[in-house]
Design a protein around this nucleic acid. Structure first.
Lengths: 145, 145
DNA sequence: CCTTGACCTTCCAGTCACTGGAACGACTAT
DNA sequence: ATAGTCGTTCCAGTGACTGGAAGGTCAAGG
């Protein structure tokens, strides 16, 4: 199986699959022509990775989860620990976004959005009448790659 | 005013302030010694940027908002448009995270988390019994820089 | 005058998880 | 032989910083 087939089946871009090999998540064999030759095992792993990534696990999480997946002597506590950590990070992010959303919605609501220059949104950002920015620690959240 | 003072006042790291100059968001004067010399105007702009970033606006949004802020002839509709777009992006992200959260919480809940190897989390990721990964389009969401 | 230490400068590299593109080789069908 | 599709590698870019190295500047104290 060549990378194109695997890409179609798994839904992962070929680039991503090559990247996963680069960072050691999979180790497909090579044919005489130098092409990667994927086995069912690799396909399975890629599906695993796709699902884990879709749940927002980092690549490092995925690496650890994959190792646990292949370790028959694992303790489910280890897996649960990773998942719980991730759940907490997700909750944090949701809270952050909701706080942003609340402030922003208020401002948008207060703005006439017409041809005149008066704008409560700019007023807020400029003068900071309302406490629009309580926590500058983690302003992140806008990663639309 | 040197960069250190401005950093303390605005709460933005000096590195970030230099970066903002690099990408043309601010244009502080320079003293004879080569040090940046910040005026009230710069301080004001940085505060604006800090608040806009805290609300999750991208740097490009910030650039546009700043331009509108300084344009007396602006139409508030333009500002509102940027803010509404951003609000929509936030809502999308929240929805994505909530969907992840729901699936993940279910799995975590089903996992004993003990010394035994059986683990519903790994079962799901491995075999995909449950549809844990409906949308692979935007798996992102984990940008904890 | 010299040193210490805090401050400032620039520039380069790294982050995360890819993604785009160039330049080239391999295979398939006509 | 040729065209077109697939595969390969390698390099660079994304967003918004952040860390660190190597060096210049300044004020205070001895």
């Amino acid at each position: 199986m060549n990378i194109g087939d695997v890409s179609r089946i798994s839904g992962l871009p070929a680039k991503t699959i090559r990247y996963y090999e680069d960072i050691g998540l999979i180790r497909p064999l090579r044919g005489e022509n130098g092409y990667r030759s994927f086995q069912d095992k690799d396909l399975h792993k890629l599906a695993f990775l796709g699902r884990a990534r879709a749940l927002g696990f980092t690549i490092e999480d995925c690496r650890n989860l994959l190792a646990l997946y292949e370790d028959d002597g694992r303790e489910s506590a280890a897996v649960k620990h990773i998942a719980e950590d991730h759940l907490a990070r997700i909750d944090e992010k949701i809270a952050q976004l909701r706080s942003m959303r609340a402030t922003l919605a208020e401002l948008v609501n207060a703005c006439a959005g017409d041809h005149r220059p008066d704008c409560p949104i700019l007023n807020d950002l400029g003068h900071g009448d309302r406490p629009a920015s309580d926590q500058l620690k983690k302003p992140a959240g806008n990663c639309s790659h």
